[in-house]
Design a binder for these strands. Structure first.
Lengths: 255, 255
DNA sequence: GAGTGGTCTAGACCACAGA
DNA sequence: CTGTGGTCTAGACCACTCG
């Protein structure tokens, strides 16, 4: 009912959206081919293609070249920034934490992460915030690819000053119970607050490939910075999530 | 350097992006027409059109049918959820608050809001949270359209239980210094914390019209709920922002 | 009316998936 | 090899802007 008489591809998209909503096209099922839809609805295939691209960009359908177009099942994942970083949740059930718990609950799959750790020259933004040198190898980088079963869910890259992390468990892929935040506390760099900046942007080619996204879709880029009592930034992490699968949840104290 | 040999429209987009970055096409200036670009770059106009649509969806250019395509100037606005709701900032400089201050600083224009207030049947989601009846007129709705000068920046719709707001300044468009949060405190409903859920989605037709967006772009939808000491939700607000103009900033206490 | 973008069509060719 | 989607081209028509 929202549609005025806009362009034809929008009408096609609307029609398909309705058919998905009313169950004509069931969750997970394959849509008719573009040729079939074009014939049935009396439009050119290019028009149908554009409509499907629009729906794909919203995450409602997924298009596989050579196979067909499928209605997505959308287990929306809530990323709770509060729980995520409370000590209780961090040290809960091994190293898994709130993210893994949420993923397991919502998708029924096993959370998993591929972690690689190395020492690098930090990007300028990270170096600025962390107060380290962007021109020398002054940071430990932890690169994480996270999955639910075999479904990629998130990319995260963390930078930690080398003078804090060198030779510690932070430089090992499995950083142990409570993760690197707990390790940093043990090392005398307790994080007492964090800041996060959220934007939405198209995925890079690498992100699109890993997260199985199209250039039309969007990711949340969450820049997370961990701060100590004396206002030193000790962790700089960028999280990347496909927007159509996530809700970001924040708790805000008002006094 | 990110581009592999992807499709041609992506290459065209890449070329134009570079020209904007290196100043060949200055901020605010008009791009060559699609016909000119097609001729120069040796592609069909449809291909150039698709490239420009891509750039438009990212907020890098703005297309005006009949006039041309223009490089956007992007004063990115930081919406600070922490400062926004701290009492000090709320009661600062009249009713304007952090949002207005930020807008004024970043755009050099005068912040302005069109406010309409009425009593309505609340949408189900709001009614659930607020603990009121979705089938009767049980809420005051405050609908706000906000601008910087004549540039539309944000849509916000708030629902407040009628039993709190009836006959109070909350039902007047100008709710006075500190806004409705201060009014609610005076009425014995002090908000002590808030929660926010963030998603990114395409704009509705109405939002697209007001915010001057295309269906390819995205908005942040921030669902903001204000809670009192005894965990009653007393305010349910949905904020809508064009994603390409905003950074959402959060402060997260970790202990 | 001329300039400019939005979209549609018809036809073509390519790339990937799967039997 | 066939089915299916991704994209490009050429041409056309429409809608909005501005003189």
């Amino acid at each position: 009912m929202t549609s005025t008489h806009s362009s034809e591809y929008r009408q096609v998209a609307h029609t398909i959206r309705e058919r998905i909503a009313d169950g004509t096209y069931a969750r997970g099922s394959k849509l008719p081919t573009e040729d079939e839809l074009a014939a049935e609805l009396n439009y050119n295939r290019a028009t149908v293609n554009r409509a499907l691209r629009q729906l794909g960009s919203e995450g409602l359908v997924r298009v596989h070249r050579g196979k067909g177009t499928f209605v997505m099942e959308l287990p929306i994942i809530t990323r709770d920034a509060g729980n995520r970083y409370s000590r209780a949740n961090r040290e809960h059930n091994g190293n898994r934490g709130a993210f893994a718990t949420e993923v397991a609950a919502k998708t029924g799959r096993t959370p998993r992460a591929d972690v690689t750790v190395d020492r690098v020259q930090p990007p300028i933004e990270a170096a600025d915030v962390l107060g380290i040198d962007p021109d020398t190898v002054s940071a430990v980088r932890r690169h994480r690819l996270m999955y639910a079963g075999d479904i990629p869910l998130q990319v995260a890259v963390s930078y930690i000053p080398l003078d804090i992390a060198a030779g510690t468990p932070i430089e090992t892929p499995d950083s142990g119970p409570g993760g690197i935040i707990s390790r940093m506390t043990e090392l005398g760099h307790e994080q007492v607050r964090a800041t996060e900046d959220v934007i939405a942007r198209p995925p890079t080619d690498e992100e699109a490939a890993f997260l199985r996204m199209t250039p039309d879709q969007r990711v949340f880029e969450v820049t997370h910075i961990g701060w100590t009592e004396d206002d030193r930034a000790v962790e700089y992490t960028i999280h990347v999530y496909p927007v159509h699968q996530y809700v970001l949840h924040y708790d805000i104290p008002m006094r």
